Amino acid sequence: MYPFLRLAKTLAKSSLDFKQGDKLRLTDTATYQFTVQLNDIDNFLEMNNGRIFTLFDLGRTDFAIRAGLGKKLLENRWGFVVAGSTIQYKKRIRAFDKVTMKTRVVAIDGRWFYMEQTLWVKGVCACHALLRTAVTNIKTGKSIDSQDVLNQLGYHDVSLPPDEWVQAWIDADKLRPFP
């Protein structure tokens, strides 16, 4: 089940943080802390990989609100979607572990915002994801040009080209056959 209570808490806390001046620049890293709950684990008594992606949604929500994108999404009737991802799991995350999630934008091109998200337990990175995200028009479902989004946010001269590893993923993903 989707964590609606956590979502409500995230929306409230992130909005309050933004109003109180805890804002992020697009190049900042957002941190989001939580404790693994029993409904987050699977039959192997570790955090379920699907739940990790769901909780990454909350990290991106926090980032979007505190970076000012949340307000623009509402004003312009935009959505914020994931169009692709890759993830590596390095360490098990168990029930009741205290986790720090880090979210940041690592690259921007004409259509996509590439975001990196990590989960940390006791100072060790437990998993690392790269996501291709876009801002979309809610009515048409079409993506909004990244520069238009940046302009709305007041970033007229931002250039964030992909690092070598991000570009390699972008290139490899273009070769992927889609049924």
Rank of each mutant, 00 (worst) to 15 (best):
Q167N: 14
Q88R: 11
V121Y: 03
V105F: 12
G123H: 07
V124S: 06
L69P: 12
I138Y: 07
L24Y: 06
D22C: 04
N151D: 13
L175Y: 11
Y114G: 10
W165H: 14
N49L: 00
Y32A: 00
L160H: 09
A30Q: 08
Q152A: 15
T27K: 13
H128A: 06
K122Y: 10
L69W: 10
L175S: 15
Q33S: 06
R104M: 13
Q167Y: 04
L160K: 10
Y155C: 14
V166D: 09
H156Q: 11
Q37E: 11
T118W: 03
G68Q: 13
D109L: 15
G123A: 06
A64G: 05
L160M: 15
T118Y: 00
L16F: 14
W169R: 02
A12L: 15
V105T: 11
S85H: 13
F178P: 00
S159D: 06
T35W: 03
R77Y: 12
W120T: 13
W120G: 03
A168N: 12
L150H: 08
V166F: 07
A67I: 01
S15L: 10
D163E: 13
S14R: 01
D57G: 04
I41S: 05
I108L: 08
G154L: 01
D171A: 10
L11A: 02
M47A: 07
L131Y: 09
T29V: 14
W120E: 15
I144Q: 03
F44N: 08
R111M: 08
A126Q: 06
Q88I: 10
V149F: 01
F178G: 01
R132M: 08
K13I: 04
A30W: 02
F18G: 01
S143F: 02
R92T: 11
Q33H: 12
N49Y: 00
D109M: 15
L74A: 13
K102T: 14
F178Y: 01
T54F: 02
V166E: 06
P161R: 13
L150Q: 05
T27M: 15
M101R: 05
L16A: 13
L45P: 00
M115N: 09
V149Y: 02
E164L: 13
V106Y: 13
V36M: 11
G79L: 07
F96W: 13
R92F: 02
K13C: 01
L74F: 11
R94H: 10
V158F: 09
C125E: 10
D62W: 10
K9N: 09
G70N: 11
V106K: 14
L69M: 12
F96M: 09
N137D: 14
V36D: 08
D171Q: 06
K139R: 15
S15D: 06
L74P: 02
L55N: 01
F113D: 09
Y32I: 02
N137L: 09
Q152I: 01
P177R: 15
N137A: 07
A67S: 14
G123N: 10
G59S: 08
M101W: 01
Y2A: 09
L69D: 12
S14H: 00
K91T: 07
W112D: 04
F178A: 07
R77T: 05
K98A: 13
L11D: 00
S85D: 06
V99N: 12
Q37Y: 05
G79R: 05
A134N: 07
N43R: 02
K98L: 12
L55W: 00
V149E: 07
P3I: 02
H128E: 09
W165D: 15
A107P: 10
I65W: 09
